[in-house]
Design a protein around this nucleic acid. Sequence first.
DNA 1: GCAATAGTGTCTATCAGACAATATAGC
DNA 2: GCTATATTGTCTGATAGACACTATTGC
Lengths: 239, 239
Amino acid sequence: VDEAEFLAGYDPTAYPRPALTVDLVLFGLREGRPAALLLRRNQHPHLGRWALPGGFVGIDEDLDAAATRVLRDKADIPHAHLEQLYTFGAIGRDPRARIVTVAYLALLPESAFAEAPERGLVAAAIEVPWAGEAGGPVTALSPKGETLPLAFDHAEILAMAVLRLRGKLDYSEVAFALLPDLFTLRQLQDVHEAILGTPLNKPAFRRRMLDRGWLDPTGRHEAGTSFRPAELYRLRRPR
Amino acid sequence: VDEAEFLAGYDPTAYPRPALTVDLVLFGLREGRPAALLLRRNQHPHLGRWALPGGFVGIDEDLDAAATRVLRDKADIPHAHLEQLYTFGAIGRDPRARIVTVAYLALLPESAFAEAPERGLVAAAIEVPWAGEAGGPVTALSPKGETLPLAFDHAEILAMAVLRLRGKLDYSEVAFALLPDLFTLRQLQDVHEAILGTPLNKPAFRRRMLDRGWLDPTGRHEAGTSFRPAELYRLRRPR
DNA sequence: GCAATAGTGTCTATCAGACAATATAGC
DNA sequence: GCTATATTGTCTGATAGACACTATTGC
């Protein structure tokens, strides 16, 4: 059996093989809520539904390179924190053909997020029911609050993205990828609260973050507030 | 561009596509140390090196189903805790052709582990250098202590498996998948210490595990010791 | 001075590590 | 009783939540 499979590895017509794509969860915060950039499908199947940007993996292209290419070409974003999320390969997930997709998570600061609508992308708020730790199926909402029907298994992929972020939030630097270079402790706390979906204790959060030693105070302060301005911090590099 | 890719999804000859496989990390403990079942390659490339059992994903086969099939057919193990680990798709990872592999982690109790050698599988101890949290490249050792050269990028896959286990150890039930149905608290602690590669405080570990409420005492005790026998516990189901 | 938020101090409950004391099996 | 390990108790230091207090800005 192994010999046949070996040959099938050389000859693409010996056995039919699944097609391989990457799909990107372009994740960020929109008005303090989890959000992702979605693309409206203008073809069958799932015409009119909303989908993650994606593309086929080239025969001479790394998976990470394919994800970077999709980020650049379909979302016009030159650079972002990118990490592989999970690979989805259920039989019926695409009605056209057998397509296995490697989902990637891209983390965008709110600024990059704001420029997106010109490309036909919509910044959809992602509602994650708390659903007892596991996180249920998500719903996507347009900026006006309408529910956006999702294509394929993309609701499942979005749910996985939020769960992954929750898990990595407090031992990794993912939160900082969602913030500008300079940020206040309040902004950092807002990011944590948005992803966890639960309020946090302010003094405890401050203590934890400062004791961690990842933050450098800049001595500068935010401007334009009508109240006491908060100090701006920067992520210490390299970590 | 999208239209061309759409058609390529239907017609396998329009664009060449990567082949897709699953590879399994059959993980367990051998004499209190992390170990995995490896298969000696009897073909080029990497003839004589040691590899994870794997196989091509059928066109009508779920990824999980492919992993289950490999577990059954190549390792003769009817059932195990299986979870997707990561997808490896670097360009040169297989010199024959472009092959992308979805790595799975299978967790075996030591009993299933002991029966393996008949299938040509070797239970290799996995040495993970501590390497400051990140875990460096692993080395595999035969039961006699010889270093086993690994095929393809399988050292990287094994390293990822151990890192994943470390991360999930204390909020998931992966440790129990490595133990028999009835086990003592000492055995549970040994599993944790083996995976973390560091000793743990005994009273604190007991308290933590018992307070968690996952364990049911059975009232029964281990036998055959020449000292005080420990109580046997069972994982409470369902979690 | 007022409003609003930043930032700090203190008290308490919880949890982990250290260490020692007690319990129980075979011999 | 002796040995080896299981199991429990206690002390202590670190950490998180609750809550109140002080600081600073624009107006």
